[in-house]
Design a protein around this nucleic acid. Structure first.
Lengths: 375, 375
DNA sequence: CTTGTCGGTGCAACCGATTGCAGAATTCCA
DNA sequence: TGGAATTCTGCAATCGGTTGCACCGACAAG
C-alpha cells in the first residue's frame, strides 16, 4: 500500500497523485553521493563550467549522476536564470496543411539549439491574445506568429511586451517585427507572366482575403505584373477565406466576365475551387480557361488537371523564421529584419496556350455587358 | 538586405541580454503595493483559494495586480507544486499531413484545460529517446506518442519512467499503454467488402510497412475480410514506407499478377502511387483496376479519379488521445485503455463494378505464372 | 620566510510562487 | 465576561538549480 489515496476518488478531475512519479535523483542527492557540494556538482555537470572543476572530480560526479539517473530539472534551472529555451508558435489553423511544413521547419531549426516548441492554435483574435499571455506566463523566450491579420492586437501586444517575435508567412504591415514571407509579389508575377507568355490577355485574379498580407500582396503583384506584361488588369474578386468553397463562390463571380481565358488564384485551394466553378459552368480547364494556384500544396500535382502553381518552400520559411528568432533572442536590440523566400513556378497541366480559335471565340459573348466590373 | 546583421556578432550563439525584457510585476510587488503578505496575494489571485480571503481584500489585490500588469509565473509555480500543465507530443514526421489534424485535436482538447503542448519531431528512434528525456527534463506531465514502432525503446522508456503516456494512431503491441487508433481491421474490411460487392474477386493488398501497427493490422484486416467475402486472399506486397514512391514500386510488383482487378491499399499515398503504376502500365483506373485508399487525406477527392477511401477522423483521434491522457495524469493508476475510432467508407470514383467483359478478359494472361507469389 | 597568485570548492543568496501551520482578530455561546 | 470556535492573514519553509563571492591550500616570486 504505497499510497492510500484512491477509494473516494473525489472530484473526478484534479487530485494528482502525491508522489511525483519516478523523477530521478536531485542534484543535491548526486552531490551528497559524490561527497561534494551541490554547487560543485552543478558546475561539473554543466559543460560550460566543467573546466572550473578538476577533471577527476568531474568524472566522479558524472559517474555518480549517471548511476543515480540524474536528470537536470529545466524548470528549476529556468527559474534561476531566466532561460527557458522555449518558444511559442501561434498558428491560426493547425489543420491547414500549409502550416505543418512551417511548423516542421521551425521545430527542426530550434531543436538544434535545444529549444522547445510550444504550439498553440489561435482560432480567433482574442483567443490568440490569451495564448500570448499564457506563453509569456510560461516564460517563452520568443514567439513565432503565423497568424498576423493586418492590424493585429496580437502584434501590438508583442511589441509592447518587448517579446522577440517573428512573423512567418505573413508580414507586419508596420514593419515593427521581423518576418519571413514568400515573395508574394514575385510569385504572382511569375504566374501572370507565364499566362501572358501563353498568349492570354484577359486574365482574372481570384484574390485571397484582403486583410491578410498574402492576399493583399498577391493582388498587388497581380496588378503590377499585368502592367509589366502590357495588359489591362482584369477583374479581381476577393474570396472570403482561403478555402475551396470560398474559391468556388468567388470564381463564379469572376466568371461572370465571359471574356476571361485565365485565372490566377492567390492560393491552391482557391484554384481548386475555381476548377469546380469551371466544371459547374461546363468549361474545361485548361482548354477553355487556364488556372494557376499558389503554394504547391501536397497532392495538387495529383488533381485533374495537375495544377500549375507557385511553389513556396514552407519548410524553409519555418526554418528561417526560427533562425531569425534565435538571433533576436540572443540580441534583442537587433532591428527587425524582413526575409523573402524565392517562389518558383511549377509547370503542370492546368495552363495551356490560348487557342486563337477557341476560348473567347467559341463561347457566346454575354448579352450586352462587355466588361462586367467586379472586384 | 534590409538588415545590417551588426558587425561584431560575437560567438553567434549565446550572450542573452541581461534584463529579462518587460516581465510584469512579481507577486511580491503586488503584495507590497496592496499592503498584504505575498501569501495572501497568492491565495487571493488563485480562484481555488480566493474564498479563504475576505472579499474586499481579494478585490483590492486583484485591482492592484491588474494595474501592475501582474502575470503569474508558471515556471515558479511549477517548481513549487509539481504541476507544469505541459504535455509532450512526439510525431515521427510533422510534415506528414496525417499528423496535422491529430495535433490539432490534441491541442484543442488540452487547451480547454489550460495545458500546453510541446511538440517534437522524432525523425528516428534514438532521436525520439532523447526527446523523451528532454520532455521529462521539462517536467511534462504526460506524453502523446504518434511514433510507436512495433517494438519500441521509447515505449519501454515511458513505462519505465511511469510517465502517463497515450499512443495515437498506432497501438502498443504489448498493451501496456493506452492508445487511440482507427479500427484498422474494420477499415480494411469496409474496403474489401466494398470491392467484393462490386464483383471483384482477384483483389491485391498494397500493404504498408509491417513494423508499424497500422500496416500489420490492415494486412490482417485484409486477409480476414477476404475470407469473410469467401474470396481467396490475393497477393500482398508491403511497401517500404507510406509514400507515393514506395507505393508505386510495390504496386508495380503487385501488378505482376495480371489477374488483379482491384487493389486495396493500406494508405492513400500508397494508393496514389498505385495509380501511377497503373498509368505506367497503361491500365486505367477504375476501368481496368479499382483502387481504394485509406485515411481520406485532404485533397484525395480532387485527384483523378477521385479516390475511394476509408475516412479516419484524425482530429477525433487526437482529441480522444488527449482526453485519455488527462485522465491518466489525474489518476496515474488507471489501467491502460484502448479506444478504436470507427472508420467510414467514402465512395468516390476510383472503384467501379467489375466489367464481366473487360478487365481480366481483355488483358493477356501472363505467360505461365498463374499466381505469382509475392510478399 | 613573506607575500602574491591561482586553481578548486564551498557558502549562501537568489529565482517567484505555494502552502502547512500558527497567530491575531472577531464572533459566538454560555 | 470568559472561553471556544471561526475567520482571516502572516510566517517561513520549500521546490531544484545557479552563481557571485569568499576561502583555502599550494606553489612561485621576491
Amino acid at each position: 500500500m504505497s499510497d492510500s489515496v484512491s477509494p473516494p476518488t473525489p472530484p473526478k478531475q484534479a487530485k494528482v497523485s502525491t508522489r511525483p512519479a519516478s523523477r530521478g535523483a536531485t542534484l543535491q542527492q548526486v552531490a551528497d553521493a559524490a561527497g561534494v557540494h551541490r554547487s560543485t556538482a552543478s558546475r561539473a555537470l554543466n559543460p560550460e563550467t566543467a573546466d572550473l572543476i578538476s577533471p577527476d572530480v568531474v568524472a566522479r560526479i558524472a559517474e555518480t549522476a549517471a548511476s543515480l539517473g540524474y536528470r537536470r530539472d529545466l524548470i528549476a534551472a529556468s527559474l534561476r536564470n531566466s532561460r527557458t529555451r522555449l518558444v511559442g508558435v501561434l498558428v491560426p489553423d493547425l489543420a491547414n496543411p500549409v502550416f505543418a511544413p512551417i511548423l516542421a521547419g521551425v521545430e527542426a531549426a530550434l531543436a538544434k539549439d535545444h529549444y522547445g516548441v510550444l504550439v498553440a492554435n489561435a482560432a480567433n483574435d482574442v483567443g490568440a491574445l490569451e495564448l500570448v499571455e499564457s506563453l509569456v506566463s510560461r516564460r517563452a523566450e520568443g514567439l513565432i506568429l503565423a497568424t498576423a491579420h493586418r492590424r493585429d492586437r496580437v502584434l501590438a501586444r508583442c511589441v509592447e511586451l518587448g517579446l522577440p517575435t517573428v512573423l512567418v508567412n505573413r508580414a507586419d504591415p508596420d514593419g515593427r517585427l521581423s518576418a519571413v514571407t514568400p515573395d508574394d509579389r514575385q510569385g504572382m508575377r511569375l504566374a501572370v507572366l507565364h499566362l501572358a507568355s501563353l498568349g492570354h490577355r484577359r486574365i482574372g485574379h481570384l484574390a485571397g482575403p484582403q486583410d491578410v498580407s498574402t492576399g493583399a500582396l498577391r493582388a498587388e503583384g497581380f496588378r503590377e505584373a499585368m502592367m509589366e506584361a502590357g495588359l489591362e488588369p482584369g477583374p479581381m474578386v476577393a474570396a472570403g477565406a482561403y478555402s475551396r468553397e470560398a474559391g468556388e463562390a468567388a470564381a463564379d463571380r469572376l466568371l461572370a466576365d465571359r471574356s476571361l481565358t485565365a485565372i490566377a488564384a492567390a492560393n491552391d485551394l482557391l484554384a481548386l475551387g475555381a476548377m469546380r466553378a469551371l466544371a459547374a459552368r461546363r468549361l474545361r480547364c485548361p482548354a477553355d480557361v487556364s488556372v494557376t494556384g499558389h503554394n504547391d500544396m501536397p497532392l495538387v500535382d495529383m488533381v485533374e488537371p495537375p495544377l500549375t502553381t507557385i511553389r513556396i518552400c514552407h519548410d524553409l520559411i519555418g526554418r528561417e523564421g526560427a533562425r531569425l528568432l534565435l538571433e533576436r533572442i540572443a540580441q534583442p536590440d537587433l532591428p527587425p529584419a524582413q526575409i523573402r523566400t524565392a517562389p518558383e513556378l511549377i509547370l503542370r497541366a492546368s495552363t495551356a496556350p490560348l487557342r486563337a480559335t477557341a476560348a473567347v471565340g467559341s463561347r457566346a459573348r454575354p448579352k450586352g455587358q462587355a466588361f462586367p466590373k467586379t472586384e
